[in-house]
Every structure is written in C-alpha cells, then in structure tokens.
C-alpha cells in the first residue's frame, strides 16, 4: 500500500472531526472522498500532508510512519503534493516563479533546468503563454491548473486534491477535470475530496463515503454511488440528486 491511514483521530475543541478513520490507497489508485461538508474530507487530506497534527492513530506512506514525531515533515511533504480549493498561488510571483519555487529552493535544482521543466509542463496544459503573468491575470480554471502543475513538478508519490473545482465557475470546471483525468492515465496516485459525483464516478477507482469521522462505506463508484448499502449514504446521495448534482 502506498498510503495507509489507521485509526486516525482529529479533534478541534469538543468537535470530533475524524473518529478512528482508516483508509488504504494502493499505488496508481485514485480514491474519491465524498461526504457532507464538515465530514472531515479536507481535514483528512491536511493530516496526510502533516499540515494538521493528528490526535491519535498512524499514517504510513510507502511503509514509513509519517506521523512519527521524529519524522521530518518537510521531507514527508516533498513526497506528497497538495492542491487547495482556493488555489493558493503566490500572488507576488509570476506563474513561472510559482512553479519553480520548490524545485529551486527545496530540491536545489539549477534555475534554468527548473524553468525548462516548468515551461514544458505549462505547454502540456496549454498555458505556455501565461508563464510571465501574475496569478491575478488568470481565470480560476487557469490558476487551478497552475496550482496542480506547481504540485507536480516536485514529482510527488501521491497527489491530494482538496475540492479543486468547488471555487470555479461551472464552465471552467471541465478544463481542470480533464487535467486530472490525464494524470490518472499516467498512473498518478490520487486522493481527491470532491462534490462532483459525476466526475468521481468517471475517474475514481474507488469511492469512500465519509460520515461521523469514519469511512462508512467504500467500494467501486458504480456500487457506492449507484447501489449504496448504508442508509446514511443513500440519504446523502438523495440530497445530492435533489440538488441536481448527480
């Protein structure tokens, strides 16, 4: 297993967000996390990236326990990419500088090499002409694609995507989803929290429904989204269908 979350617990004050959650992700696997707002999808991703400290349990990446207090979080994060709902590009840097920051400062790559690599990526995702632009000149979809490239140039073992299309106008969602679909084709291991059930169905190998701080139900998308076993999952999906999003 590439990622093993075992009995993970996270509490904010009196609020139990993750209550002994366990989830395994195999290499080249794409897992979609679904569930109501506040069900702990984003918290789980932040815990895996060590941006949030867990209160109990263990998380292993490639067999190493990353929640060991002696593990160096900076080294762990170099193996995991995280893309945020609100892009979080650095507004004072050009697109190119956003992408080359980590390769140059963290991985000590020569600047010219890092720039060449960044340009190749931008070319691939159709943003070659935006290399010198500042983020505020880009549309939301373009910004999010740059954010994904920024995570990918570090060659992560695992890519975490936290509701990456939730802040986008509907007509811009497609370009980001296409990019994620391409990444799946290349065998990238991904865990994505999403509200796009249709997309989860298309791209995920497995869908996990989070409820009450646990994975209540998981399995192939057709089964979890089409014929769920648990009553809570059915209720959730009924609300989604009501909202016209499945």
């Amino acid at each position: 297993m590439l990622l093993e979350c075992h009995q993970v617990r996270k509490v904010f004050g009196d609020n139990v967000i993750l209550d002994g959650l366990s989830l395994d992700v195999g290499e080249h696997e794409v897992v979609a996390l679904i569930g109501a707002s506040g069900s702990g999808k984003s918290t789980l991703l932040r815990c895996v990236n060590l941006l949030t400290e867990i209160d109990d349990g263990t998380i292993h990446l490639d067999g190493d326990e990353i929640t060991d207090p002696r593990a160096d979080p900076d080294q762990v994060r170099q193996r995991i990419g995280l893309v945020f709902q609100s892009y979080n590009l650095f507004p004072h840097m050009t697109v190119l500088d956003n992408i080359t920051l980590a390769p140059v400062r963290v991985h000590k790559k020569p600047l010219t090499e890092a720039r060449d690599q960044a340009r190749q990526w931008l070319d691939r995702v159709g943003l070659a002409d935006k290399a010198g632009s500042y983020p505020d000149r880009l549309s939301g979809g373009q910004q999010q694609r740059v954010a994904i490239v920024r995570a990918l140039v570090n060659n992560p073992r695992l890519l975490l995507l936290d509701e990456v299309t939730s802040a986008l106008d509907p007509e811009l969602v497609g370009e980001v989803l296409t990019m994620i679909r391409d990444l799946k084709g290349e065998g990238m291991t991904m865990v994505l929290a999403t509200h796009e059930m249709g997309f989860a169905k298309q791209v995920a190998d497995r869908v996990a429904f989070l409820d009450g701080g646990k994975v209540l139900e998981q399995g192939p998308p057709e089964q979890v989204l089409g014929d769920p076993v648990e009553a809570r999952t059915r209720q959730f999906l009924a609300r989604i269908i009501e909202a016209g999003r499945l």
């Binding site: 932040r46 990236n49 941006l51 979080p73 900076d74 080294q75 994060r77 170099q78 995991i80 990419g81 995280l82 945020f84 609100s86 979080n88 590009l89 650095f90 920051l101 980590a102 400062r105 963290v106 991985h107 920024r150 995570a151 570090n154």
Partner: peptide
Amino acid sequence: PSQISAARSLGLS
C-alpha cells in the same frame, strides 16, 4: 495562513 500552508505543502521549511 493559506499562503503558509501552500508553501509548506511544497516542502518549504
């Protein structure tokens, strides 16, 4: 703070 999160997630100290 999300700017720090983004930077840290890229492996920056």
